[in-house]
């Protein structure tokens, strides 16, 4: 493949895929350790009604109203989950299950009962995203990477995903010690005055931000996979949180790049004619990485019995 083709057609979706994977995997480390991994799943489902409502209110399919609608739905779902957990005294996992299936179903009903089916807004798009279509038409080759005019034509998803990833990295850097102490021992953290509520709230809000931004670019399948698979695989590689987070970033990157390449060329290599969904393949690769780590990872629990 020529430099032009690669830079224009493959590089942007790959970079967006990597950024989306990292933005989800980073908070995913803490969600998994806090036994809240399902929250990523919940958020990525509940954005559907949010997007539909945003469309009904504004009458157009444009990015910002949809992002705001999705973010609003994510916040509503988090509040509902907390309310159900506290008022009904139901375990968090069950509360999430109830909220996200109900809201997703509500989104599907809304979608069917309105004109939205006539525009490009469908369940398939929500699941798989449109990673392959995020191409860079202004690119003329590797030189375009330093050409401001060409750079201005990059898909807007790339900048958005990069900003979200940076915000999440900044959050982790600033709150690292508080996050670590409160994730390990919440009672002790409260006793020494760690802002436990603020940190837990920000973690969920930023996870929602990552999910919503990634959802728009790459669909909810990647979001769900990246919140859980790279952190879970990374946990099996080390017994230190700092190193686990580094491994999770590595695994997320590996999944995104390998998944994208395999989706585009894998079917051709084995004799099929059409490429497969990049989002689906990236999620599949992340699952395979987790499987390999579960079998060979040096710090898996092995024969130890659960406590």
């Amino acid at each position: 493949m020529s430099g032009f083709e690669f830079v224009a057609l493959s590089l942007p979706p790959m970079v967006i895929g990597v950024l989306a994977a990292i933005a989800c995997a980073l908070p995913g480390n803490f969600l998994v350790l806090r036994r809240q991994a399902l929250i990523g799943d919940a958020i990525s489902h509940v954005v559907l009604p949010g997007i539909v409502v945003a469309f009904l209110l504004t009458g157009m399919v444009s990015t910002w109203p949809m992002m705001i609608g999705a973010g609003g739905a994510a916040i509503v779902s988090v509040l509902l989950i907390e309310a159900i957990r506290r008022l009904a005294r139901i375990e968090a996992g069950a509360a999430m299950g109830v909220v996200f299936t109900a809201m997703f179903a509500g989104g599907v009903l809304l979608l069917e009962q309105t004109d939205t089916s006539s525009v490009h807004l469908d369940v398939e798009h929500a699941l798989y995203g449109n990673l392959e279509s995020l191409i860079w038409l202004d690119a003329a080759g590797w030189g375009s990477l330093v050409d401001p005019v060409a750079l201005a034509g990059l898909p807007p998803e790339l900048l958005r995903m990069a900003v979200v990833a940076c915000v999440i990295v900044a959050f982790l850097l600033v709150f690292w010690r508080g996050l670590k102490i409160s994730t390990f021992d919440e009672g002790f953290a409260r006793s020494v005055g760690v802002p436990v509520r603020l940190i837990g709230g920000l973690l969920v809000v930023l996870s929602a931000l990552a999910a919503v931004a990634a959802f728009d670019a790459v669909g909810s399948i990647i979001v769900i996979a990246m919140f859980i698979c790279p952190p879970a695989a990374a946990r099996l590689m080390t017994d230190r949180l700092e190193i686990q987070v580094a491994w999770s970033v590595g695994f997320a990157t590996l999944s995104a790049v390998a998944g994208y390449v395999l989706a585009g060329y894998g079917p051709l290599w084995i004799g099929f004619e059409n490429a497969v969904s990049a989002a689906g393949m990236i999620a599949t690769v992340s699952g395979l990485v987790l499987a390999v780590a579960a079998i060979f990872g040096p710090h898996r629990k092995g024969a130890q019995l659960p406590r």
Binding site: L33, K180, T183, F184, D185, G187, R235, T238, D239, R240, L241, Q244, K301, R307
Partner: peptide, 8 residues
């Protein structure tokens, strides 16, 4: 009260 599998 805490999870001793925590990576630390």
């Amino acid at each position: 009260s805490v999870d001793w599998d925590f990576p630390t």
